[in-house]
Nucleic acid binder design. Structure first.
Lengths: 337, 337
DNA sequence: ACACGCGGTGATAACGTTTGCCGCCAATTC
DNA sequence: GAATTGGCGGCAAACGTTATCACCGCGTGT
């Protein structure tokens, strides 16, 4: 009932440890008859290879560390799920670290994972600047890919949604619906999603007139901020509120309804990410869906094909195309009402 | 730049590997002067102990496997967060497995974790019956505690919220608000949360009259079911809809509003769990808050104090008290309106 | 016939730690 | 002054695997 080791199987099948290892790992050709005997003995004894010993010898743990800012951020669970599945499909296990949105904790967790000899790291950095050092030093030791958020240019490979394209989809949709006075509610700070989305708004809002790009309020990525922002912009009567993510949009929606505004008649609202909450809001939120499964698959793939501690020469940046999901908050089904 | 090992530190500090190991691990008294030299050398070379080697030798990986049905279930992220923090505080890393609500996957993941020599397992079982075998066989090899859901009596230690007490709080609240015709919308199936909550409703609804315990509809734990259930029960005009979890309640709330019902005036709605969504619903949902942090702390503690592969003698079952969170869906602040 | 190659196998040395055991030297005890 | 501690430190054996090397026998090419 204790631990069955290679030795035990070897003894039971009358051959050497080396041979047993070889037949079980299929690492080198071995006699058909011997193979059968060995496999049978292994089966009979219920042999399970000790992954720790295997890892020590082969210098590969079959483990990747997943480091993220806050698992409670509703965008992440779906991503984590897809990553877990993608990695498990390759036989790799996932070590999880929740950083509590703190760069110091993040650095500590990355270090701990390195000590545990993870084969690779998947990092969703907490911050653009504050995370850079930890990421940069980790990148020298294992394959690492950045997810969802960047960390400065040339630091590591990264895969994320094309925020600019997503925002462009939103603006295009608004223009097509005849909206004229959009207002942007975004997030301050240096996180790449925040920066890219507000830059894209500024770049694309010109079609609504020269003043449009300047109509923006910056706070953080929270429901509370969405509510507060509406209080500040509502007096100037926008006919569209473009939010930098779904949480902000949900807050905006709530406050607008409290103020008696007609959504989507008088003013429409859009989000970004398409978290589960978006479809549940009332009215359901028009938003930009991130291709979560593809993001995960791409990240996992990149991780595999990356030289350990590769030089700074060839950083890849993958940007995946998002998709506009039109729901009631911009008038879908309004005609039928 | 490569791997700095104990040997290197030993060479650099002019003493043996054994001594270095001892000063770094503090496992045995060692000369003050030697200790200083060694520590200095270790620091200078940037020595980091190889956890894999350590694990192989000491037969402890400092790793626990966390196995859950679906990370995308909005109740879990908060729990995962607390567990990760609690375990990390003890220096243990967390391997994560998402089972996609499938008992077969669950068994596979548990097996994989065992092969990886996890020190312990934390399992939120997918199903009461289907998960039993995998859990029972794992329990023989490592400390294991069941979380949130049970898995049959005597299989393993478990910690969960006191569902009966939570439901009692709800019924008490409804009675105090003068409600007379409650209706229960729950989940069929054998998951312990489903069973216990509906049993508690049946047991406690007697105060609303002899018919009350029988006024129930059973489906699953989803928003869609919440919507559908309302369509079935609304014709008989309940003045309270008691839901088995927040997702159901959110669906019910949506449908009731679509049907033009006045919530909370005409009919009140309650949920269970207090997921983030609950506070965001409109009207905000009265619900039963699970003590997530305490659940996690208790589970982590139990895990530590459990003999490896302990006999079936002494299974502990911890039930933590929930808390009623009263919000607008049962009329909080209504008087002020 | 001889050398050569090659499929199949066994010993054995790693991988980087922890730890049991033994020996050394100084300090204490009779 | 010799014997007995007891604190410190080194040697070497594990932990369970994989990888390297050598070996053995047999078929093949010249």
């Amino acid at each position: 009932m204790a631990e069955v080791t290679l030795r035990d199987v070897a003894r039971a099948s009358g051959c050497s440890v080396a041979t047993v290892s070889r037949v079980l790992a299929g690492t080198r050709p071995v006699g058909a008859e011997t193979a059968r005997t060995v496999r049978e003995a292994a089966e009979r004894l219920g042999y399970r290879p000790n992954q720790v010993a295997r890892a020590l010898r082969s210098r590969s743990t079959g483990t990747v560390g997943l480091v993220l800012p806050q698992i409670t951020n509703p965008f992440f669970p779906a991503l984590v799920r897809e990553l877990e599945h993608a990695l498990h499909a390759e036989g790799r296990a996932v070590l999880l670290a929740d950083c509590d949105d703190d760069p110091v904790t993040e650095a500590a967790r990355i270090g701990a994972f390195l000590d545990r000899q993870v084969d690779a790291l998947l990092v969703i950095p907490v911050e653009e600047r504050a995370s850079r050092n930890a990421v940069a030093s980790a990148v020298a030791r294992v394959p690492l890919v950045l997810l969802d958020r960047g960390c400065g240019p040339g630091v590591a490979d990264s895969v994320a949604v094309d925020n600019a394209a997503g925002m462009a989809l939103v603006l295009e949709h608004l223009a097509a619906m005849g909206r004229r006075r959009p207002w942007f509610v975004g997030a301050a700070g240096t996180a790449s999603a925040a920066v890219e989305r507000r830059a894209a708004y500024e770049a694309g809002a010109g079609v609504f007139g020269p003043e449009a790009p300047r109509r923006r309020e910056l706070g953080d990525f929270s429901v509370e901020w969405g509510r507060a922002a509406v209080d500040r912009i509502w007096p100037s009567r926008p006919d569209a509120v473009v939010c930098a993510n779904d949480l902000i949009a949900v807050g905006a929606l709530q406050r607008l309804r409290q103020l008696g505004a007609d959504v989507p008649g008088e003013v429409v609202v859009t989000g970004f990410d398409d978290i589960p909450l978006a479809g549940l809001a009332d009215p359901a939120l028009t938003t930009v869906r991130q291709p979560v499964a593809e993001l995960a698959a791409e990240a996992a793939w990149l991780l595999g094909r990356q030289p350990t501690g590769g030089g700074p020469g060839s950083r890849r940046t993958v940007r995946l195309a998002p998709e506009l999901v039109v729901r009631a908050s911009t008038g879908a089904g309004v005609a039928a009402k």
